[in-house]
Structures are given as structure tokens and as C-alpha cells.
Simulated assay, not measured.
Amino acid sequence: MPFQIVRNDITKMKVDAIVNAANSALQMGGGVCGAIFRAAGPNDLQKACHQIGQCAVGEAVITDGFNLPAKYIIHTVGPIWKGGGHHEAEYLTSCYINSLKLAVLHGSQSIAFPLISSGIYGYPKKQALQIAISSISEFLLEHEMDVTMVVFDQDAVQLSEKLFDSIYQYIDDHYIEENVIHTNRNQIEYDQVYSEMPILQSEPEFNISESKRSLEDVLMQLEETFSQRLLRLIDEKGKTDAETYKKANIDRRLFSKIRNNPEYTPLKKTVIAFAISLELNLDETIDLLRTAGYALSNSSKFDLIIQYFIEQKNYNIYEINEALFAFDQVLLGA
């Protein structure tokens, strides 16, 4: 997945490069910085930092990863929060962009960030996350790289109170406590909320007004595979392949598999990511899901959150993923 948010220890991330929220003197500090120094080997890392000297706010420098799983450590100095009127946003944006450019320069294909400046530097977490997502998503429009935002806890991702309450109320109004399916043939039980296996249903559980469609359209769509339907929709919407998979937070290699194999069936979250990318309405989204053997369910919080955003005509996949993360659901993308 080109961009994801995870709860993890950044020193354990198996990526090409991790980013250290450093101080200007490149000295071992506390918080994330201290943890990275300790895991990498404080003496070796401090020696490498001494050889560099200093790093200005918003800039980035690079060292080896030493004892870390990551090959490189990119050190960037975030701004101290002073109320927002001292170019903090510009400096923080530069931290992400310069770190990403440095990663590309050194051949890195994957990178993990902490939420820069949101600790002892006092940057409000919600604003810090918005800048991180905006900077990274803009960069990914022009570059191929897997980017992970690593947070220690769910509180790091803070939706606005209004949005959180609105989604929560929507789930409360529509949720049906019926999410265990029994199959008589092999007596397997599984939770439909988290299952990625295709679930064939004759009708979706949502109460949706039927669209008027010609018999020719219906018959054509019944014969289409997921790959065929997706490629047709891309053409109909006037989109390019790259524009579609990037906006869907999908890896180019996965899109290539889908394009080259008409019988390929992706995960449900991947199908929905394409629906969001193409800004499909709810009818169109359900139709696309059916071609891959999936359906939406009122017993799935994940599905209800997706329906909420589609009904609101909000197709920003990064905002949707923020909401999914806040409600402890799987994120959209590959």
C-alpha cells in the first residue's frame, strides 16, 4: 500500500528508511529520537551524526541504520509549535518533502515516519497529521514509494468532534447486530466484518432506490469480470491508469496484475479503494463489488463508514482512512 497508518514501534519497521524526529544538533534526545538511537546503537549513530554536524529546521540528512532493520535513518528537524504564526506549517511540510526526496535519492522504495513535532515540540496532533497526509499524498502523485505513518496509539489520529459524532451516529442508526455466518457444508464460522473472502449475495442489505438501467447494460455487466468492469469505468470516467491507482492508494504492481489478468480477484478493501478513486455512487460501488464476489453489509462498521463517505460525496481516500483508523477498521488500498 503506498500510504498507510499503523500502530507500531518505528524502530522495528522493516522498510528501507525510517525517519528520526531529530534536534538541530543531531544529538540523542528523548521520545522517538532516543528510541531510534538506542535501537540503532547509540555510539555508532552518534558518531555518524557528529560527522554531519547540524541540521536546520525543515531540512533532512541521512545516516546508516546500523542495528535497525532499516538500511537508512533520515534525520529531520521539525518546528517547535509557537501558536502557528511562525511558519510552523511550512517548516513541517518541508520535513516530509525533504525526507522523501532524500529517500528517493538513496534508492529507497519504502519509508516510515513518526508524527513529526507532535511530541515535546508541541505541534497539535490533528494539524500535524493533516500536514503529514497532505505532504505525503502530494508527493506520491509523482513518485512510486511505500510510505507508512507510525503512531504509538490511536489517539494520535484525532478526527474532528463533529465528524466523529456524525459517523458514530450513522453507524448507530444503521448497524445490524448480525455478523456471524454459518456454512452448513464445512461448519466454518467467520465474522463478515473482517472477512476478505468473497460473499455472494443475491441482493445488498442497503435500502437503495433502484437505478433505471437498460437490459443491454445489465446483461453486459453480468458477463464482466472485475478487471473488465474496472477498466471500462476508468475509460468512461476519462481517467488515466496512473491517476486511478494513485488516487486509490494502490501499488502500481498490483494494478498491473489486475489489468493483465481478467480473472484476478483483489481484496474487498482494494475494490472499494477503486470505487472511491473513480468517485462511484453507491449503486455503482455495489455493482463493482459484485463483479469480485463481494457485497456491502449493515452488520459491518467498515462498510457503513464507506457508505457514509460515499453518501457525503467525500472521496478523499486519506480522510476516509483517517476515519477507518479512528474506528479501528482496516484501511483502504492494496
Score class of each variant (00 low, 15 high):
77 V>F: 04
97 I>V: 14
55 C>K: 08
73 I>F: 10
130 Q>K: 14
98 N>D: 04
52 I>M: 13
82 K>W: 05
139 F>E: 00
139 F>W: 00
61 V>Y: 02
52 I>S: 13
110 S>H: 10
56 A>T: 14
64 D>P: 05
73 I>Q: 10
79 P>L: 04
116 I>T: 00
84 G>M: 04
93 T>A: 07
75 H>C: 13
51 Q>V: 15
128 A>Q: 02
95 C>R: 00
128 A>H: 06
58 G>V: 07
62 I>Y: 05
122 G>L: 10
140 L>P: 02
102 L>E: 02
68 L>I: 14
133 I>E: 13
116 I>S: 00
74 I>T: 07
73 I>C: 12
78 G>N: 04
57 V>G: 01
135 S>V: 04
94 S>V: 01
114 P>N: 09
128 A>M: 05
111 I>L: 15
49 C>L: 09
141 L>N: 14
124 P>A: 09
120 I>D: 07
57 V>A: 11
112 A>R: 11
110 S>T: 07
134 S>H: 14
85 G>H: 08
54 Q>P: 04
48 A>K: 12
110 S>I: 03
81 W>I: 02
69 P>M: 10
93 T>V: 05
90 E>C: 04
62 I>E: 01
83 G>M: 09
63 T>L: 14
59 E>Y: 07
80 I>W: 05
115 L>F: 12
136 I>F: 02
56 A>E: 15
78 G>Q: 03
66 F>G: 03
82 K>E: 14
141 L>M: 14
95 C>I: 00
96 Y>Q: 01
93 T>R: 11
107 G>D: 03
126 K>H: 15
80 I>Y: 09
56 A>G: 09
104 V>I: 13
136 I>P: 00
54 Q>H: 15
125 K>L: 06
115 L>K: 05
108 S>V: 14
55 C>A: 11
109 Q>V: 08
121 Y>A: 10
131 I>F: 03
81 W>E: 10
82 K>S: 14
124 P>K: 05
134 S>I: 08
127 Q>F: 08
101 K>C: 12
115 L>Q: 06
88 E>M: 07
128 A>G: 07
134 S>P: 03
102 L>Q: 02
55 C>W: 06
102 L>V: 07
81 W>L: 10
77 V>W: 03
62 I>N: 01
81 W>M: 11
69 P>H: 11
91 Y>T: 06
117 S>W: 00
86 H>P: 05
84 G>I: 02
137 S>M: 04
92 L>S: 00
141 L>C: 11
139 F>C: 01
85 G>S: 08
